[in-house]
């Protein structure tokens, strides 16, 4: 790695660490920005790098929320009593209980989501192209509808998480740093992962799966493991979100299909599919745009979001990185045979 690059990464890391102190009023938004970066990067693992465009990765986010909550609660209290809507007693968590629950719940959520991705993957990865997108969308919608009918999980009311007993400012910083750490780990992991034989293999699946199969690449195995890794991070992010939001319910928060579920796709398209930094840049652009404009749109923000999706998909589908790659192919090490050489061959 060159010195300049090293310096750049160092500066970025420093900014990440210092951000909540530099912009104390925006700590929650910054934490959400890291959440967006995480879901965008994990979406790109299957969507951009492997060519499987999921519309249902939010399934793992919602499932992560529920698993994180259930683990945290059941560590100390009976779940049915905790989620009973008519309960009168209160359940108090000491800081020690709270953090034990957060660590175990979040790890458990990640593992559960990774395992469930691995388990349901063989069914979904038999579906190609639009069928995969629709199938995964169906998964997310069905999960939300089913969970909202399960009383022990709070039904349509959702679950109220234990509340951190200490200073609220400290709580916001904790959430920020957990998300940021997760995001940094993910970026470092992916920058290595995409260089491995594994990373090359999933690119091969994206570009021509039939050829990859004919070459004896374990396509299903690679697809499953990639989805499971992606689900692991999304699940953990979901669990942390549950702690951040304190209260969540199934349809609008956990399995929020048209909210975060589609934001992650928009972020990736905006920044550029199939690149490491595209999703990160896309997430930053989209999040800033959203936070700045949201309140001025006077209720029309969701219409604007739909319109934004249409505009990006129709006019700017390759994203920022794709546009750069097109304009400056040499920056990406792309070299093509000249016309003269081709003609003589």
């Amino acid at each position: 790695m060159s010195m300049r690059k090293l310096a750049l990464y160092g500066a970025l890391l420093l900014l990440t660490v210092a951000a909540p102190f530099l912009f104390p009023a925006y700590q929650t938004q910054l934490a959400t920005l890291w959440l967006m970066i995480i879901v965008a990067l994990t979406w790109d693992m299957t969507g951009g790098q492997m060519g499987y465009n999921s519309l249902g990765n939010i399934f793992f986010y919602g499932t992560g929320m529920y698993v994180g909550a259930v683990i945290t609660i059941t560590l100390y209290f009976p779940l049915a009593e905790y989620t009973d809507a008519s309960r009168s007693e209160t359940f108090t968590f000491t800081p020690e209980m709270y953090f034990t629950g957060m660590v175990l719940g979040t790890l458990g959520a990640g593992l559960f989501c990774a395992l469930s991705a691995y388990a349901i993957g063989p069914l979904f990865f038999g579906l190609r192209g639009p069928y995969f997108a629709i199938g995964t969308l169906g998964l997310a919608i069905a999960a939300g509808e089913i969970v909202s009918n399960i009383d022990i999980l709070g039904g349509g009311q959702g679950i109220s998480m234990p509340v951190y007993g200490g200073d609220f400012e400290v709580f916001k910083k904790i959430i920020y740093y957990v998300f940021a750490a997760m995001g940094v780990v993910l970026i470092v992991f992916l920058s290595w992962f995409y260089q491995t034989r594994f990373g090359k293999a999933i690119n091969a699946i994206r570009d021509d799966e039939e050829k990859a199969e004919a070459m004896g690449i374990h396509t299903l195995r690679y697809k499953l493991v990639t989805w499971a890794i992606s689900a692991f991070f999304v699940g953990m992010a979901g669990s942390i979100s549950a702690f951040q939001l304190i209260h969540f319910e199934p349809l609008e928060t956990a399995y929020q299909t048209i909210n975060l579920g589609i934001f992650m796709v928009v972020c990736v398209l905006l920044g550029g599919k199939g690149t490491l930094w595209g999703p990160v840049i896309g997430a930053i652009l989209f999040h800033v745009f959203k936070e700045v404009t949201w309140n001025y749109l006077l209720g029309w923000q969701w219409v604007a979001l739909g319109a934004l999706i249409v505009v990006i998909v129709v006019f700017f589908q390759d994203g920022l990185m794709g546009w750069l790659r097109h304009r400056k192919p040499e920056w990406f090490g792309i070299r093509v045979e000249s016309r003269e050489a081709r003609a003589s061959a």
Binding site: N53, P130, G306, I309, V310, V313
Partner: peptide, 14 residues
Amino acid sequence: LFTSLLATFGLAIM
């Protein structure tokens, strides 16, 4: 195909 799927999804939201 994903383009048309996503574009119509955007339309649906709108």
